[in-house]
Design a protein around this nucleic acid. Structure first.
Lengths: 115, 115
DNA sequence: ACCGGTACACGGTAACGCTAGGTACCGGTA
DNA sequence: TACCGGTACCTAGCGTTACCGTGTACCGGT
């Protein structure tokens, strides 16, 4: 999609994926499809795989290889304790940023509504 | 500050600065101080100047050189029509992203409150 | 003569998401 | 048999962005 969303996803996409994995374990292809369904912009498949490699290397997730009847084996990722800490940290940072930005948004709208 | 905030600012910092300029014209040093006061993390001075050069080159702002009694002349930036369009686009993108992320946040908290 | 505050600018670095490919397994169809 | 499309994963190179450190310059006070 647009450039704007691409840049804004930097730093948040990892949190988004961790939040998804907090709900239930999943594999890359599944996560990509899930995001696409939710209209979470057109996130490239490769981006998700690269991100998953990153969070695995940082020890935020555990991985299990599970055979599939429809193709190559799936790599199923599960959020572990360290990952939950990271997710909590993500939410803290997000809250701070979102709050400050919303304040700007309100002030902005005050003097320039509907432009 | 933290890595997390640094990455999250990518893509949002430009919108933040445009929003500030929407309220009133300002120069780099002033914007930096403003952000620092608002606790908007410890944004590096150099970052703001680089960003201002960028938005100027894209034609989102008009610039006027104003002499200062306290040092070198100030470069005062004003948001123009194109910049207002860009800011509106920023808010649209932000709203979409923030809404989707908040949904994840709620779902996340449901099964893992206060962990 | 010196220091600190004001004000701007630049080069190199790291992180991130995107693009555009490639590999491999499988079932259905011509 | 040959081919295509869906499933599932991976990689290299690229552009954008924010950070760090440093440098320049103007000015007033001591």
């Amino acid at each position: 999609m647009g450039n704007q969303m691409t840049e804004m996803l930097k730093g948040t996409l990892e949190g988004i994926v961790l939040a998804i994995l907090a709900r239930r374990s999943a594999y890359g292809y599944e996560i990509t499809a899930w995001l696409r369904d939710r209209g979470f912009s057109d996130i490239a498949e490769g981006t998700i795989y690269a991100l998953l490699v990153r969070v695995e290397q940082r020890g935020f997730v555990d991985v299990e290889k599970v055979p599939s009847e429809k193709g190559p084996p799936r790599k199923v990722y599960s959020l572990n304790a360290k990952g939950r800490d990271q997710l909590a940290e993500f939410w803290r940072t997000w809250s701070v940023l979102a709050e400050r930005i919303e304040q700007l948004h309100h002030n902005d709208n005050q003097h320039d509504e509907g432009a």
